[in-house]
Design a protein around this nucleic acid. Structure first.
Lengths: 240, 240
DNA sequence: CTGATACTAATGTATAGACAACTATATATG
DNA sequence: CATATATAGTTGTCTATACATTAGTATCAG
């Protein structure tokens, strides 16, 4: 398990081992992790080295330390999945609804100045534009336009990003999504939104704009969405 | 600076000192922090203790460690200050605007069923209601209603929560704010909002609802706000 | 039975030291 | 002059140890 001659730091190897045990459910949420001393003796390493591994996992939220009691595997809460960046389909599933979508447009276009700047590309670079109506339980909730560089996603067909573009990025292409900058504001629906969301003139919408980054801090997605105000409320958990 | 007889851990005291130096701009972004050995010798403490302080600040993003070179003060990005839970006044300052407010109502009321449930109180318990118009550079941006239990904040006067209720909670009462559950949606302004925000019938507003928790997971604040859609955009950074 | 006390085991804090890995600079060598 | 080479200084990793603090349990006294 732990190889003292490995170039990888011991604390890192231990982190990976514990992560693996949690992932494979040999350690389940709520259960007690072996104590620091046990790990130190088992692998014949210093307790401080064990602490370094456990502290890292605790600050990642995977473990919960309790003085005098021990270290426990964290519960993966429902809120925890809602917390943080989610795609439309993940979001809807978390709310107990069935997501689907109706594709309006799927093309390759050339980046204009604004899109090139947002996505850190040169003007004229190839972009996919994915324009779709988002439904929950067959009823329209949002219109969404995604711009994503062809240089990152390569050749892509409609089947690839249906139902979830994030799923394709992560599971099929193996990218790791790190974080997003998101903006939200209220507005009145324009003609296009009104038509596709089946709402009336003067009805409000929640506008969302998001720039999403891979783990190497390269932006791979710029999305603009408009949500029906009467059917969608954005919920999040924020730490201080 | 460092008091070895203080009940506060040494590493924590050092963290606070470095934070203070950054805040007061005696250490500016990009500058080199004194080395670990320097701190250890200066205060006659162990280098490992210094490391604990510096590591904590580095994982908070305040410092950036570079092997072989040293530890540097991080650039404070605009987004970094916006990340996480902020009060209206903090939010506006981060945008370079001057926040102020006009108090509309400040009373003690009795919790109804809904408020009691949200704030984990009994029906009829005393609550402060703080109702104010929020201005940025003298111009109205939002109307805000805060409900907070008298049992937590005790006696409170208008001066206490002006300009910032969070500042009073944290700096004066010594509470630690942990996190909030927040919801955002779009709507049309009602009569009251239109009057105070000086907007017209049919104009949209961004509605925000927030339940804020102390470090012991007790809710201390329930806020409802309505922001002028043309003057306010909610920005946040979200990790995956 | 109840309550105080002692004990055990866990994490938290802190020390002193060693060597590794990396960066930058100064110095010697061709 | 250009290129190795040494050197100093930094953070990174790791050890072994000590005592503090907290939680839970066991034990004993009343």
């Amino acid at each position: 398990m732990i190889d003292k001659n490995s170039p990888l730091p011991i604390y890192y190897q231990l982190e990976e081992e514990i992560k693996q045990l949690i992932k494979s459910e040999q350690l389940k949420p709520g259960e007690l992790l072996p104590s620091e001393r046990e790990y130190a003796e088992k692998y014949n390493i210093s307790r401080m080295t064990v602490r370094q591994a456990i502290n890292n996992l605790a600050s990642d939220g995977l473990l919960i330390r309790q003085k005098g009691k021990g270290t426990f595997i964290a519960e993966k809460k429902f809120e925890q999945t809602l917390q943080g960046l989610t795609s439309f389909s993940e979001d809807m599933k978390a709310r107990g609804l069935t997501p689907s979508s109706k594709l309006v447009r799927f093309d390759v276009i050339q980046a204009d100045q604004k899109l090139a700047e947002k996505l850190q590309l040169a003007e004229g670079d190839d972009l996919f534009i994915i324009h779709r109506i988002r439904l929950a339980n067959e009823s329209p909730v949002a219109v969404e336009t995604i711009y994503t560089p062809k240089s990152i996603v390569g050749d892509m067909t409609e089947a690839d990003f249906t139902p979830s573009f994030y799923h394709y990025m992560e599971k099929k292409l193996g990218y790791s999504i790190k974080q997003a900058h998101q903006e939200m504001e209220a507005s009145l629906a324009n003609d296009f939104e009104r038509e596709h969301l089946r709402i009336n003139e003067g009805d409000p919408v929640l506008l969302m704009e998001r720039l999403t980054f891979l783990s190497n801090d390269i932006p791979f997605e710029y999305v603009k969405s408009a949500y029906r105000a009467d059917r969608y409320k954005f919920k999040l958990q924020m730490p201080r």
